[in-house]
Design a binder for these strands. Structure first.
Lengths: 185, 185
DNA sequence: CTTTACATGTAACTCGTTACATGATTAA
DNA sequence: TTAATCATGTAACGAGTTACATGTAAAG
């Protein structure tokens, strides 16, 4: 949808190779927008063909050569314009919700376990978010404007995560009560 | 990912045509899992080929003929098993977050507007959820188990929506303060 | 007379995932 | 010697979107 623009965004401050991008993505934008290295390499090539990125081969010692990509002026302009265009939300699709539509006395135990695992995974993710927040965004109001935007994205992640935990607790509660009602064990 | 299973789930209680499914989807599961009619028709055909659905042509008066699909025994079994299999989350991808990474003095006004629109849209969606909740899930504890699962999915929608509103307010606040700081107007 | 609801599809394309492929260096 | 890190790719497939196509009946 806008992976290309996400990639360009990641290149605003530093030039990067596909490999570096894939990692940087994992640590920042990728928290909200995952992309595999295959996708990134393909997208980088397309963007270079369009003239929005330039590529420079860089020889390295003890490591394979890499290809550094950087935003061109045209790329910066395209990105700047894009912000004004209509945006889309690809709503998340979660098997778990479909499974809940199939809740039964037989599978209730399994679903409790599954929700418990989700809870645990989200706890860990929140812990990561919190470390980032404390490390880089302790005082958002003194940051440059662009960084404040990034902070807001992080806040979205944190709030969404906390909401998710709250839902898990509510769901686990309800399911525990129901399972007890209809036959403990 | 699991559109096929979402479709089978929608057919647990009533047989439906592709057209009816597309509508029912919009009103229930589709609130969390959107699917276009093209996708649904294709998926129905695949499922019928697998033997998980049966098809019956039904002549109608004053309306075009339709094809009714119903879960077969094999379909019910496959669905029951699927609940125990590993589930996936397709995390939502939202252009707005990428745009926020590009926040600048120039586009801050636009982003405030865009967030305001999101807020408004989410308010309306929450209003819809609330109507459904009051209409069908006022006392979840007395519902049959399966309906309680559906209720939990609805709760997820409600909690996520409320969290989203809270984020919008926070973001609008921060952006308003920043815009005032750097040049009112 | 025009729009909306009913009803089902095909074709082309983009986006994203999975599997496969290669090859050097460094640390355990 | 085995695994991990660095580095870049191709090919096949599946999921999802957009555009196109057709036709009847009821309601305004």
């Amino acid at each position: 949808m806008a992976l290309s623009h996400a990639i360009m965004t990641a290149l605003i401050e530093d030039d990067m190779s596909g490999y570096e991008l894939a990692k940087a993505f994992d640590a920042s934008l990728g928290l909200f927008w995952h992309a595999s290295h295959q996708q990134i390499y393909q997208e980088l090539r397309k963007l270079a063909d369009k003239g929005w990125l330039n590529r420079r081969e860089v020889a390295q010692r003890g490591k394979p050569d890499k290809i550094l990509y950087g935003l061109t002026l045209a790329g910066r302009e395209a990105l700047g314009e894009w912000v004004y265009r209509e945006s889309r939300v690809q709503e998340s699709k979660d098997d778990l919700l479909v499974k809940l539509y199939n809740l039964s006395a037989e599978n209730i135990g399994h679903l409790r376990v599954e929700i418990g695992e989700r809870r645990e995974a989200m706890m860990q993710r929140l812990y990561l978010y919190e470390r980032i927040r404390r490390g880089h965004y302790a005082r958002p109001e003194v940051l440059p404007l662009r960084r404040q935007g990034v902070f807001l994205a992080l806040r979205m992640g944190i709030l969404a995560g906390e909401q998710y935990l709250a839902w898990c607790d509510e769901a686990l509660d309800l399911l525990a009560r129901e399972q007890e009602k209809r036959g403990p064990r």
